[in-house]
Amino acid sequence: MKEFETVTVFDLLIRYIKDGRIRLDRTRFEGLATYHDPCNYGRRAQKRFGHGFFEEPRWILDQCLENWVDLHPCRENQICCGGGGGALTSGYNEERIYYGRRKMEQIHASGARMMVVPCHSCHGQFNNIKAKYGLPDLSVKYLWELVADCLVWP
């Protein structure tokens, strides 16, 4: 990997913010938000590559929101949303929806009405199952969507 540089979505957003290339307004979202650690960015990256992306997304959230809480458990002990590993495309939908029940219980318990997540599989799963578990109005946002929504621009 010496031929060119690679950056993760977290690295790039943090770079833009720290270098002053983008400015963010922390007052745009007032309701309580929460964050879900995707298995592959967190626990599995920690195991495979020796670094789980736990702190980076939380730092970015702090730049965008004044009012967010963690789920319990979270970070390396989080519970999978049920949409990973290709589950959204395997056709075993009944199993996938049932799988998501514990994650949805966590979100209920947090009181959050916005879920921020940096993974396409998790994002798809939350939107697919939220109504079934009594949170039809849960706003599911990509981490970079939250950043774009908070941009001070022009």
Binding site: C39, R43, R44, K47, E76, N77, I79, C80, G82, G83, G84, G85, G86, A87, S90, Y92, E95, Y99
Partner: peptide
């Protein structure tokens, strides 16, 4: 069907006292 019901989330290998890499098996 089991290998496809599992999402390879890694909770199992995290807790396994013998270090068995179950998602890799899946």
């Amino acid at each position: 069907r089991w290998p496809w019901i599992c999402t390879m989330c890694g909770k199992c290998e995290q807790i396994c006292p013998m270090g068995i890499e179950i998602p890799d098996i899946i």
